[in-house]
C-alpha cells in the first residue's frame, strides 16, 4: 500500500494567478490530504478537503508574504490554524511551498513525526507558528500577533487565521472577536470555514451559531461572505482584506467561506461523518481517481 501513495516533490510558487491556475495546485494538495490520511489510518478528512481552495489561494496567490527558506523571517505574515484538527491541509501547503520535503507528508501522525496529529510547535516543523488543537485558542493567539504588529512593531504584517464554524461555539472565540474589534486590528483576517458540519451533525442542530455574519458585524468586523470553492471570490475577498489593511481602515476582516466538507470526493462531500475519519485503502484509491 505504501508504494502506491508517493508524494512527488512538486513545489508551487507564491504569485498572482488567474483563477483557473489554482485548480492543479488544489488537486495536488487534496491528493496529499487523501494519501497522508490513508497512510496515517486516522485523522480528519472532511475539513482539510473543504478549505483547500481557500488555503491554495492564500499560500500560492501572493496573498501572504512568507519565505520558506527563512521560516522565521521577521517581516513574514502569519498564519494560524486555530482549527488544529485540519492539520493535513496545513502540512500539505507548507510542503508544497517548500518548507520541508514533500515525502515527509507520509509521516503524518506517526511516532516521532514532525507532522503531529495536531500542530505542535515543539516539533519545530518549519512554517508552523503555534501549537493548536484546543478550539478557540488559535484565533486569540492570532489576535495577540496582530496586536503585536499593529500596536507595537508597526511592520505592516498581516495575520491570517482559520477557524471552523463549530469552533465558534467556544466562548473564547467571541472574546477574541471582541478584542479584535476593540483594538481595530485591520491586519487580522479571520477565515471561518463554514461547512455547517461538526462531529455530531449539522452545526445548527448541535448548537446554533447562526447568523454568523451579524455576530461579526456587531463586533466591528468587515464581513465578506464567499463561496469557498470559487477562486475568483476567494481572490477578491483576500484583495479586499489586504486593501483594508493597507488603508488602515480600523476594522478586522472576517471572511465567511461557505464550503462543503470533503469537497471534491463524491462519497465524502457534505457528509459530517467524514469530519474525523480517514479513508481506508480502497476509499483512498477511489478518492484519488476523482481528484484529477
Amino acid at each position: 500500500m505504501d508504494n502506491s501513495f508517493v508524494f512527488p516533490q512538486i513545489i508551487f510558487e507564491n504569485k498572482r494567478r488567474i483563477p483557473e491556475d489554482f485548480r492543479e495546485i488544489s488537486l495536488e494538495i487534496k491528493r496529499d490530504i487523501i494519501k497522508s490520511l490513508a497512510l496515517a489510518k486516522s485523522g480528519h478528512s472532511g475539513g482539510p478537503l473543504g478549505i483547500t481552495e481557500v488555503m491554495t489561494v492564500l499560500y500560492f496567490g501572493e496573498i501572504m508574504n512568507y519565505n520558506p527558506k527563512d521560516s522565521y523571517w521577521k517581516h513574514r505574515d502569519r498564519f494560524v490554524l486555530s482549527a488544529g484538527h485540519m492539520a493535513p491541509i496545513l502540512y500539505s501547503v507548507l510542503a508544497r511551498a517548500g518548507y520541508f520535503p514533500c515525502d515527509e507528508l507520509s509521516t503524518l501522525r506517526k511516532f516521532e513525526s514532525r507532522l503531529q496529529g495536531h500542530p505542535g510547535l515543539d516539533m519545530k516543523l518549519p512554517g508552523i507558528e503555534t501549537s493548536s488543537g484546543s478550539l478557540g485558542q488559535g484565533i486569540s493567539i492570532a489576535v495577540g500577533m496582530a496586536m503585536s504588529d499593529r500596536l507595537l512593531d508597526k511592520n505592516n504584517q498581516n495575520v491570517f487565521c482559520v477557524t471552523g464554524d463549530g469552533e465558534l461555539q467556544e466562548g473564547a472565540c467571541w472574546e477574541a472577536a471582541m478584542s479584535a474589534g476593540n483594538f481595530k486590528l485591520d491586519n487580522l483576517c479571520w477565515i471561518v470555514d463554514n461547512n455547517d458540519c461538526q462531529i455530531d451533525g449539522r452545526v445548527k442542530d448541535v448548537m446554533n451559531i447562526y447568523p454568523i455574519e451579524d455576530k461579526f458585524l456587531s463586533f466591528g468586523f468587515n464581513v465578506i461572505s464567499i463561496d469557498g470553492h470559487e477562486y475568483s471570490e476567494i481572490i477578491s475577498a483576500f484583495d479586499q482584506f489586504k486593501k483594508n489593511s493597507e488603508d488602515k481602515c480600523g476594522k478586522p476582516t472576517c471572511i465567511i467561506a461557505k464550503t462543503f466538507m470533503g469537497n471534491g470526493v463524491s462519497f465524502m462531500q457534505d457528509k459530517y461523518s467524514w469530519h474525523g475519519n480517514p479513508p481506508n485503502y480502497e476509499q483512498a484509491v477511489q478518492a484519488l481517481s476523482e481528484l484529477v
Partner: peptide, 21 residues
C-alpha cells in the same frame, strides 16, 4: 493593554505576543 474581564483571551493574546518576540 487592557483586555477586560477575559482571562482566557488575555492568556492566549499574551502567547501571540510572545510568539512575536
Amino acid at each position: 493593554f487592557s483586555i477586560g474581564i477575559a482571562e482566557q483571551n488575555a492568556t492566549t493574546i499574551a502567547v501571540g505576543m510572545a510568539l512575536s518576540g
